[in-house]
Design a protein around this nucleic acid. Structure first.
Lengths: 298, 298
DNA sequence: GGTTCCCTCCAAGCCCGCCTTATGCTCGGC
DNA sequence: GCCGAGCATAAGGCGGGCTTGGAGGGAACC
């Protein structure tokens, strides 16, 4: 910076002096000593290039320049105070907006609970929600189109290494078979025993993982239907058109008429996580939302 | 003040970062090094209680709090710049007002010349003038009703010890006698030789001083007329109604029909000075006016 | 007129904050 | 895989601000 600039502190001191009419009184009001005020005013007058106040006897009056500065100081300090208050509101969770992108079944259970808690605890905050899955949701996160992305993973995900990954819950995959199926009622079903069944797959990522699991069990599933609409999957299974593997969380929110759920062997789990950027995790409204998502999952 | 307050410097840095999108570019724009910007932003985020910008890859974006601060910063920094400009205008004599109180005969000669010079050199400045004499004019000075008081004195004036006394010129007192008087045409007249003349006195202060001078010369003048209107004094002398003693400067601006001016013995002088307060003398427009008054007197 | 109190300035010292240089790290781009 | 740019961090130097202590001056009060 070339040349000394006027700082807000100077204006605060000047205003206090102008109000109280005395250096000592201004110092008391500002909570410092009188020489401090004296030095501030000297520095301000030096940078102004002209005296700002004249003292005759015990009375202090402003010069033209002093009056000009005090006049401007009112607006400047008011703006500064408004800025501080707005930031304090954001920091104190009395305001703020957080945008969440969630995968479909997560938004139907986890998110509503967390949003309700957030709204209850901090009514000034606003939460918006859209549905989306990785990698699109992560792209939105990186592009600044949302602050939190809810996602799930079946395995470690190195592509999220630069993100904050907050684990929310782990979701066991369960098998769905028609109620009349020979495995209905079995406590545990080996996945290999379903090798010859017709399959109904979920979303593309789930379908990819399903194929992986089946191939590790020694067969390639024959997928007759694929849809990311969980009730549709359940309906298709209930109609006897095949078997399916779905997250327990997804099944729980669907009425399962004529469908039996069975535990699978081997045990397959998916991890539901909240993703955000490291910097964003430190933003109060984002951190608060993450905490409440975690609480809603617990 | 408890707690760190937001300072204008912080907002300048934040705005530069927001504009350039990079700490390094902001540092170049601000004319400092990159770690300086880094520290400023860290301090600002600390006092804000929330991150102000998020960096994903090489792109930096503002958070809500950052946007709020930048939004306020526009107005605050604009106000600050306006204040600085206004003060700079006052300091650079592109603006400013100076109020002068002058004794009557000074305002008719000295002041117009000085005001014309001031207006010519610094058209943005404004000069106002009212007539008044000590002690009233000095009282106005101390009360803040004017910045410069023009006055004269016949002797040292300890009551002005706390003021800035700028000598402008010294004015010899001359005797005025009717053109038909026996002393008309004399090069020098001893004041004692006028002991028996009828006197015509000027303003009260001048009259007081006249009595002092005469008493030192051994007589008490018989004052038939007293008026602070110099043309009237000259007129009375010209009509043969008495003799008078007037400042040369006052006589010079009056047409002197039928009046002879004579040098007095002893030589009596009055000093014309400009008075102001020590603080005010440092105000550019006041100092400039004092300089031009001095120049006009020289 | 003397005394007293308050305000202000001045000098010295301390401390904190800012800026700088130097270094290591990460991330994109070639 | 290499290179350049940008950012963070640590240490050092430096200036500025605040404080304490003291002296001077003015006004009010006795």
């Amino acid at each position: 910076m070339l040349g000394p600039m006027i700082e807000a502190r100077h204006l605060r001191v000047l205003r206090a002096v102008a109000r109280t009419g005395s250096y000592s009184a201004a110092a008391r009001q500002l909570g410092c000593t009188q020489p401090a005020v004296s030095q501030q005013m000297k520095a301000l007058e030096l940078s102004a290039g002209t005296p700002l106040l004249v003292r005759t006897g015990r009375e202090t009056r402003l010069t033209e320049a002093g009056e000009a500065l005090v006049r401007h100081a009112a607006g400047i300090l008011a703006g500064l105070t408004a800025a501080e208050e707005e930031v304090a509101a954001l920091a104190g969770l009395r305001a703020g907006r957080v945008r969440i992108v969630s995968f479909p079944s997560g938004s139907s259970t986890l998110v509503p609970t967390a949003v309700a808690a957030m709204r209850n605890d901090h009514p000034g905050t606003r939460v918006s929600l859209v549905e989306g899955e990785p990698p699109g949701s992560v792209e939105m996160l990186r592009a600044g189109d949302c602050e939190i992305a809810l996602a799930f993973r079946y395995a470690p995900s190195p592509e999220w290494d630069d993100l904050v990954v907050r684990p929310l819950l782990t979701d066991r995959l369960v098998g769905l078979v028609p109620g009349t199926h020979r495995f209905a009622g079995e406590p545990v079903v080996g996945i290999g025993t379903l090798a010859e069944e017709p399959w109904i797959a979920g979303c593309p990522r789930c379908r990819g993982h399903l194929v992986d699991v089946c191939e590790r069990a020694g067969f390639t599933p024959r997928v007759d239907f694929a849809t990311d609409d969980y009730p549709a999957v359940v309906g298709l299974v209930g109609a006897g058109l095949g078997v399916a593997v779905l997250p327990e969380l997804a099944v729980r929110s669907v009425r399962t008429h004529g469908v039996a759920t069975v535990r699978l062997e081997p045990d397959v789990r998916r991890e539901v996580v909240a993703l955000t950027l490291p910097d964003l995790a430190r933003v109060p409204v984002v951190g608060g939302m993450l905490d409440r998502l975690e609480a809603a999952a617990g």
